[in-house]
Every structure is written in structure tokens, then in C-alpha cells.
Amino acid sequence: MVARNPQEPGPEGLASELLGKGALTPDWLPAYRAVPRHVFVPGLLWPGTAGGNRQGALVDRDTAPEQWWEKVYSDIPLTTHWDDGAHARAEKGRSPTSSNSMPTMVFAMLDALAVEPGNRVLEVGTGTGWNAALLAHRLGAENVVTVEVDPAVAAEAQRRFGDLGLTPLSVVGDGVEGHEPGAPYDRVIATCGVSHVPRSWIEQCRPGGLVVAPWGPAYGGQAVARLRVGEDGAASGTFVRASAFMRLRDQRNAFPPTSAYPDTGQWPAGGVRRTSFLSPDALGGWHHMFTLGIQLPDVFCRVSWGSRGAYRLWLLDMGVTSWATADYEHGRSAYDVVQHGPRRLWDEAEEVMAWWREHGGPRFERFGLTVTPLGQRVWLDHPDNPVPVRVP
């Protein structure tokens, strides 16, 4: 355990920052102070960026204790686990698979959860254990069940719970199944992203209860859904803020390689046209990605980087039939586009973005999600106004 640094940043400095942002509310302040973040951060971490999903170089508590402390008490996410544990500890792996989430996001989601005394909570995605410990302190450990798919990650979290004398029920298992023996719950919260809300989460939450989970389509763009469970087995509600969580392991995307598509090695086999309606750069915006992914659920993107910030954006369909590219270069107002296959994917993207503009460029808060036993649908402004899904 590292000694507390008398200089800011530190627990109280971060608390002041979070209170100023409105993320940490006074009712969660006692739990924040009783469950310090540094207890739930391992000695090796890779600091992220606020609102971003890129990690910096390794920070080792043993060799850089002051830097480690500074990162822990900064409002940033901290990656703690790569490639399901199969990575060189001193280097970044291919894919982050566990983290201590950005404090603003932690407390914003806890606020959205709106817990009340005596509530029973199911958490999916224990990770380092900080979120479950905060809930356990506020509600009583007997009212918190937390599920983690990785046995080693779960064991570390259990050890940290013990350091603070907290004993939430820690379950090793697939989060998609929830934990039926502890049901019904008053609240369900996921600290991992999904593209389909598992039925078990809704079925294990009592009518009138809340499910809070990061949701996003395959294309990208993710937001926190706050769903109220109804008597009819459906759940519905709005998105409350942007998010960027690692995917539930059961719902990780497996995209076909670009080489599997016809004629990608013979660019520009589809013919070149010039467009100024839609910049490739726009399709990297979080709201744009979200809207595009909802309306084109079988489309995903890749980027081929050039020099000086130039790149080629690829749009590809999951059916491995069609692709499109658009070349971006800073300062240009017209872009070369190539389309190949039976679908005109760039044309489809332009249609989606035209829809987005026609509806006033909606942000996440205007979108909502309804989940029923038959499926799920995203809507705009009202549940009776579903967002169109452009299935060929």
C-alpha cells in the first residue's frame, strides 16, 4: 500500500473535482471516503484519458509511487488487465479486458441507479471491485451481488473487499446469465458494454426496478441506458450520457477481415466519386457512430492510417458482400469515395446522416431503448417513435 501523498491530487482533491462536476453527489460522499479508490487499484496500471479509450504507458507503483498515486486520484479510467490475462505485464496488450472505471462515470451511473435503503443490487462486471464496494458500503454487503467472468480478476476483487471488511456476494460466472439465486433485485447495473440487453437482467429485476447498462451498436458509439422494468416483462427508458466500456465477453464483436471481401486488393475496383456531403471524419463522432450503428446494424468500420493525419475509412458489411472507402485529409472539403458490391454502403451512410440532421442532430439524451421478450428497439423522443433500421 502506498502512503498518502500530502500534496494534491489525492482523495479529497478528486472528491472536490467530482462534486464540482455534479458527478459525485452528497449522498455518495460517505461511501467515496470509506471506500478509497487506491485500495481497488493494483500496482500496475495503464492510465487512460478522460472520455477516451486509449491507454498510456505502464505506471508501476513500486518504481513510480508518486505518479501511480497521481493517476489513481485523477478523473481518468485505469486499465488493469489485458487480453483476458494473457499479455506481457510490462507492455500494453491487444485489447483491454478489465479496468477501474473513470470516477465521473462510476458516480454518474450510481446516481442513475437511484438506490434506496434496503435495495438489493446485482452488478455485472466486478472488475477491480471498487463499484461493488461502494454499493456494499451504502446498502450493506448482504444486499449486493457482483458477477465476474474471470476467476483471477474476481479473486483479486474479493481480496480487496476483505481489506475493507466488506463481504458482498462475489460470483464467478457469465454475466449474461445474471445470478438467479439472488433474484429478485431492485436494481441491476452493468460495468461492461452490451449491444443486446440480456433477458436475465430484466427477468431478475422486480417490476418497477431499474437496469442501468452501457449500450452501443456494433459500429460504435455507446451510451448508458436507464431502463425501468414493467409488469409486462419489458423495460424501457432513455440514455443518460455517453460511455466507453469494454464489452461483455459474451457479446464481443468478431468482424470479418478486410481481406475476405471481394476485390479489396484491387482498389479502386468500384469506381471513384467525389463527395462533400459527408466527411469521413464525421463518422468518428460518438453521436454519429451511435446513429449509424442503430440504423445499419450489420455495418462496421476500419481505418487505414496514412501520413500527417490522413486516413482511409472503410465501411464493411457483416455479410462480406460489400465495402466502401472514403479518403480523409485535413483541410479538404471533398473526399474520394469508392463503393463495391451489391450495396452502396457510403450512400447508405449519407442517408443515415441526412436523417440525423433532419431531426435536429439529436444527442444521446433524446434517444431511448425498449427491451421486450421479443427483442429491442431504439427510439427518438418517445417510445412510439422508433429509429428506422435500414435492413437490406
Rank of each mutant, 00 (worst) to 15 (best):
G331M: 13
R160D: 06
D150S: 03
W215M: 11
A88N: 11
T191F: 01
T146Q: 01
V389A: 03
G265K: 05
T372P: 07
N253P: 05
T63D: 08
H359C: 07
E142A: 15
S243I: 05
Q266K: 13
E142I: 00
L44G: 04
E148I: 09
V153A: 04
L380C: 08
P184R: 01
R54V: 15
S259T: 15
G208H: 04
P42L: 07
L296E: 06
V371K: 09
A269P: 10
V72N: 09
H330M: 10
S322F: 02
G331C: 11
P297H: 01
V39K: 13
G216R: 03
H340N: 14
C301G: 12
V172M: 04
E203V: 06
W355I: 07
A213F: 00
E156W: 03
A152K: 14
M109P: 12
Q204M: 04
P184L: 01
R274E: 15
M1N: 06
M246V: 07
L166Q: 09
H288F: 02
R247H: 09
P214F: 01
G51A: 11
G230D: 09
V272D: 01
R344V: 02
A244S: 14
F367Y: 15
P181A: 05
E156I: 07
M1H: 14
A334F: 09
V211D: 00
A50D: 12
F161P: 06
R366T: 06
R357T: 11
Y32R: 12
A310C: 12
R357N: 09
L292K: 03
R343T: 13
F277D: 15
E123Q: 14
R274D: 08
L24N: 09
D84Q: 13
L210W: 05
R120Q: 05
R120A: 14
V124W: 01
G51E: 04
A190K: 10
E66R: 10
C192T: 12
Q204K: 04
W355C: 04
A34S: 15
S200I: 01
P383N: 08
V320H: 04
E148V: 12
L169N: 03
V194C: 08
A34H: 10
F290V: 05
W69I: 03
C192I: 03
V371C: 12
